[in-house]
Write a protein that binds this DNA or RNA. Structure first.
Lengths: 338, 338
DNA sequence: CCAGAAATTTGAAACGTTTCAGGCGAAGGG
DNA sequence: CCCTTCGCCTGAAACGTTTCAAATTTCTGG
């Protein structure tokens, strides 16, 4: 026996319409009546039904958040931050975990649609050339999409991301300034924008220092995963550079683990630098030198853009298509570099 | 301009009622008609509106999942598994992240209520004697609750959890069999059930081996957190036991980190054993010997119980109050014990 | 070919909201 | 004292579904 606004109205001796207006802080209700309604509502522990509200208002306050994984601390941090931000602004997040699988992502898009989300935040999959035709369903239904952290090739929706190039540039500069010149760079398929950008930053720093990048020392892994990096480390160890720059912290930890097993001491024998500054980066030993993606700022901006698109409604001119918002990262020097 | 069932009905030249029955696989529709409706629906990319459906059926397919944190890999694993299980069974998960804060948990309960969840899965907060009066709101609204992993004192809702006592017993036995007899046990406030149970298992194994537990070597931390364990490790190192048994993997990693810094080699100088088998336990070096909580089985059972309560509806006799379902854990021996 | 049964289809009500066009009474202006 | 204006309140429609009783069609057997 759920409590409806009718019960509140009856108890407050007003009409349903009045009760609704009072509860939603609309004007046209006397202060006295509003106070009474609110009092009764509180007393009865009335909670409005969001679905019914969404139904009549033709607009929900649910936003879909699509992520590729959740056990990966990078993504769980995003979920954590975005959940808080969304809640603060009166939205509720619906989570889709694609496991970097197009089919699953498509299924979650359908779920989002049937739950009538008012917008979707997409953190792209970890895959080379994923099938993203399901995004057309969102476009067809006029559901605004914002990319967070990264985007898919050829998508025109706005994107909020860390300035990867700048981050990798800064890190490379830092190592260069320490007198290191002999690097390995470990990355993934360069078709993926975020990999390419970090590489660009790395190259620029080298170029400015008058050094050439040695393509034999750029390792391109199939996907940016722990396992791949772990397995590939032996090649690096055999060559033993002065420093290894790696595209994300998860893989960096894999490399460190393998180096450890091979008897190398970090940073005495090799320096190692990551990217992301995931929660565990600080807890590993030795704690990881890395580039911090300012996730709080990124998520904040993402939500802001989404709200702007929502407010714009039909006349979408207000948010430029294809616009990218870059957030500046921050070097965090810990103990894996000397 | 959203697509409704009316559009489908019109396109298929049937009434809305028929379209609804066809789409929901109800009987009383001829095969021919059903095929036509389904065809049209697919072609138009029709997605039913879950809110409208929930409104009229007076029953949603959304279940609330309350967790204390999400950056902690133990909890993100639960979210991962439960999301998949829920989706498979036609439910959608709504996430509440309480940060082990009663006020926040209460707020998420309100959110669950206003989103009209049909049930709630609660993974309790990491706090000593939390205020849980907000759970009464769920009870008042007749929303079934199932505890997962652990419960709050004095709550009568069903609980699905790992058999902690058995797990800690097995681990202690294992170490005993290796000839170790000199332990530290690090835990948290024993009022918390899951801590108490692990301790019970530890004590039983010792007792069976004819050994006494030395209360001076039982360390009770304020809460089961990385930081606390890290800070407390010095006391253990100064005493240098043969082995340290720790109540969860996160704290175990903290202990290992500190020991590492203090120059101790694991397991040569001390053996260390954790509990949970979190994703990172395998990736640390050396990889952690621990007790695996069978999360998949736990989550599966949790969902099953919730569905049973849902099906039972008003006559709640079918699920006994206060019932606890124990799932057996599994020892995973890696390299932190000799 | 017809009555009756069975199968299929349909119109309308209901779910909990918001909103809009009005209604009612009191205050203000002439 | 009447007309207008204003403030406050209300009834009813609408949102996208499901479901139930009733209507219509099809089938069955005589």
């Amino acid at each position: 026996m759920k409590l409806t606004i009718k019960d509140v109205a009856r108890a407050a001796r007003v009409s349903v319409a009045t009760a609704s207006m009072a509860i939603n802080n609309r004007e046209g209700v006397s202060e006295k009546t509003r106070a009474k309604v609110l009092g009764v509502a509180r007393e009865l522990n009335y909670v409005p039904d969001h679905s019914a509200r969404a139904l009549v208002m033709q607009r929900s306050s649910v936003v879909g958040l699509m992520i590729p994984e959740i056990q990966n601390p990078f993504y769980s941090a995003i979920v954590d931050i975005l959940t808080r931000i969304a809640e603060e602004r009166g939205f509720t997040l619906l989570l889709g975990i694609s496991n970097s699988n197009s089919r699953q992502e498509a299924e979650y898009v359908r779920m989002f649609l049937s739950r009538r989300v008012c917008g979707v935040i997409v953190v792209p999959m970890l895959a080379n050339h994923p099938d993203i035709s399901h995004l057309d369903m969102l476009r067809a239904a006029d559901v605004p999409v914002v990319f967070c952290t990264e985007n898919y090739a050829l998508c025109e929706e706005p994107l909020v991301m860390c300035d990867f190039a700048s981050g990798e540039y800064q890190m490379t500069r830092y190592l260069l300034d320490k007198g290191l010149t002999d690097f390995w760079f470990v990355s993934t398929d360069m078709d993926v924008q975020f990999a390419r950008l970090r590489y660009d930053g790395f190259c620029r720093a080298l170029r400015e220092a008058g050094l050439a990048v040695n393509p034999e020392r750029v390792m391109l892994l199939k996907s940016p995963r722990y396992r791949h990096a772990y397995d590939a480390t032996d090649r690096i160890v055999d060559d033993l550079p002065q420093a290894v720059l790696c595209i994300n912290d998860i893989m960096t930890m894999a490399i460190m683990k393998r180096m450890n097993e091979r008897g190398l001491r970090i940073p005495r024998d090799v320096s190692v630098a990551g990217f992301d500054d995931v929660m565990f980066s600080e807890l590993v030993s030795p704690p990881l030198t890395t580039v911090r993606q300012p996730l709080a700022a990124i998520c904040e901006k993402t939500m802001e853009i989404l709200e702007a698109k929502l407010a714009a409604g039909a006349d979408q001119a207000s948010v430029e298509r294809g616009r990218t918002y870059l957030i500046q990262p921050e070097l965090v020097i810990r103990e894996t570099t000397l």
